[in-house]
Simulated assay, not measured.
Amino acid sequence: MSIFQKELKQLVHDKGALLSTLLLPFVSTMILGFALTNSFSSEVSFEDVSIAVIETSTLEEDLQIASERFSVHEDELKPLAVPDSLFAYMDGDISVDYYSPDSNVVHEDYTAVIEIPSEYRLMLWHEQLVGGWSEQVESFQLYVNQEQRQHAMMVETMMNSYMEQVYAHTELAENDEGIIDFGNVVVQGTSPLTSFEYYTYGMGVLYVFFTAGLMANFAFSEKKGKIYGRLVIANVQPANYLLAKFATSCVIVFLQLLVLFGLSMLIFQITITNWLSFMAVAIVLCLAVGSVASLLVAIQFRANTEKVANVFMLLVVSILGFLGGSFFPSSNLSPLLNEIGQFTPNGRALQAFIQAGQGESIAQLSNSLLYLSIFSLVLFVVAWVVFPSKGGIES
């Protein structure tokens, strides 16, 4: 604890380094946001979204059966058709193709594929008009194309929002609390990001890794200045020193994110829909950067050189930014590049931040949270093993 307090006091006294570390991500976000503002759309667009619907019976066939069964005109049933009524609200922006189960549908050609089981529309009409849900009828299946990650996420969120409204309105109608009228479909969390929103996330997840390199250089400066040697002579365990660097890095990263997102919300009007998910991502990102800082400290102490951190900040962080999509959406260049970017810590954190900002729950972000947690644990264990037992003071 005493070492950690020393680190924080040293950090507070070096106000110039502290301010530049905290404000640099925001300055970069502001520059890139203004420079590339025309590269991002602020309006919802589904022009590149295509959906394939695999159905055992067509909408027209189901309408005819339902009209005779419920004694309701087809024109009154059509606006209640699920999921067909959703597409009617999109004004033709979404490309929708219908297939029979025998058709050979190439899933990769579509953003999403929806499989509607037999009598699914009839079951929902029965529920809406008569009541009495039939649990024997399967729900439709939605398959999304991960190579079109952004559009696939839009479709998935759109369908979830749509079905929630269907169930809600049906429940209200059964209790005579409303009229069966689905109204306008509200697409939640699917708006394409503005340039300021994207680069707030992109610069946030990138610049925190510079902090890892800076912490490693600070630690090596302490080694050269015999400060670390005096700590070891004072019976401070090397493991505790490494833990202090890890904890200090986490605190600095958290402050960086706090300043960046606070200023961006105030000035650029970005919004965070799910704060719980957002904080969870921020915490695991702090741990990831702390583990990277620990590993750099361990390697530099073992090799007795500060070049490792310099190479990391000048070269490795730039590569991470390129692959992870911090400079521009990597999915716009290549699906393969986008997939590779998901294995970088900043790329995975960027995607998780965007999803949290658009309202995804912690459960939906569990893969990203688990990945970053395992990444942190593995790197810190490696750092622990690599760090010299005497901190390298003998060299």
Rank of each mutant, 00 (worst) to 15 (best):
T211E: 04
V53T: 04
S28D: 00
M158S: 14
S41E: 08
V130Y: 05
V236L: 03
F268C: 02
M159I: 13
W275K: 11
G225K: 05
S331K: 10
L370I: 14
F246Y: 14
A288T: 06
L32S: 03
I31W: 01
E76S: 03
N184V: 12
Q146V: 07
P79W: 08
S318R: 11
L276F: 13
L36R: 04
S326A: 14
R230K: 09
Q165D: 13
K226E: 12
E394H: 11
A309E: 08
L258A: 15
V308E: 09
K390D: 15
F210R: 04
K223Q: 08
Q128F: 11
N367F: 09
P238A: 07
F209K: 02
E394P: 01
A234W: 07
G324Q: 02
T190K: 05
Q358E: 10
F261M: 04
L370W: 12
A288H: 01
Q364M: 13
F70M: 11
L370A: 15
A66I: 06
H13E: 12
A247V: 15
E108W: 00
T58Q: 13
S264P: 03
Y120H: 14
S294T: 02
I54F: 04
I267F: 05
V205T: 10
I283M: 12
Y371D: 08
S134E: 04
Y143M: 14
F46L: 09
G357I: 09
A152C: 10
N104L: 03
L372I: 05
E115Q: 10
V311S: 09
Q358N: 06
E135T: 14
A282S: 12
A81W: 02
I283E: 03
